[in-house]
Design a protein around this nucleic acid. Sequence first.
DNA 1: ATAATCCCTATCATAATTGTAGAGTATACA
DNA 2: TGTATACTCTACAATTATGATAGGGATTAT
Lengths: 146, 146
Amino acid sequence: MRITYKGDYALKTLLDLAVNYGSNPISISELAKRADIPIKFLEQILLELKKGGFVESRRGKIGGYLLSRHPAKITLGEVIRFIDGPIEPIACVRDGYKGCSDLEGCVFKKIWSEISECTSSIIGRVNFEDLAKKSNKPKEEFIYQI
Amino acid sequence: MRITYKGDYALKTLLDLAVNYGSNPISISELAKRADIPIKFLEQILLELKKGGFVESRRGKIGGYLLSRHPAKITLGEVIRFIDGPIEPIACVRDGYKGCSDLEGCVFKKIWSEISECTSSIIGRVNFEDLAKKSNKPKEEFIYQI
DNA sequence: ATAATCCCTATCATAATTGTAGAGTATACA
DNA sequence: TGTATACTCTACAATTATGATAGGGATTAT
């Protein structure tokens, strides 16, 4: 598994939205500023996260983004797989792979599977409620709004 | 961690050499044919493995490659790190990383570390003697030689 | 109306990956 | 001593992934 900048940005943004879950939508520019992410890049990432059902948006003035589900219902694993693709270290251990003639006897495949399962277990049991609670990021007070 | 074709080829080639440890050198063309690897690509990989101290070579007629150490002394992890680079899923958990302002409080960093340790432990405890014993690949008989 | 916001597509620079190509050097052996 | 068969080394090329940047268009609170 490799976490790209895109994945890293997505996770940090979702964490921000999780910490502020239940409040007003947060704008892209605000999210970008707080996590030091290029704004136009984050724009694309958020559109993708929206398609993936992780966030929803409000348009127009005072628009922005919010989580589309309770933080406890979003696991780290879901997001990573959606943004950065399969977590398996090599294609031969991914579902539906047909490209190898020795899938049975290969001594490496068992090891790649073991790594995949271990990784999957770690990122599968962590959700964004856990992360938000552990995070030191303060919940925003919206002192500039309304 | 991502295993590239280069890494995959390196591992398969070292396994062949481990299975045939103690025998005559095996030529690049023979190794390439047996593992279905593009010969000129494998040529480069073997030069790299040689620089890394994993294999040594014999030039000239009846030349080829052999392991430079006993298979039990070569771990999967060493080879993967040498050929495909760091196993950590993201740069911030690699040794000497300075690029993040929140290395202490980051809730993701702990997870990346956990995954790294788990992966490292799996690939660190497997060596090429184990792999050769478990492999179904027959030791070559050298019926064409001498 | 208008300002602030999200929506959408195109484009681009850089690096990594996965090779190919070709000329050179060393060695065994007839 | 010539030659076939190896390894050595460097350059380069095609493709894809990554990490952005750019510029309109659509929507909404006020």
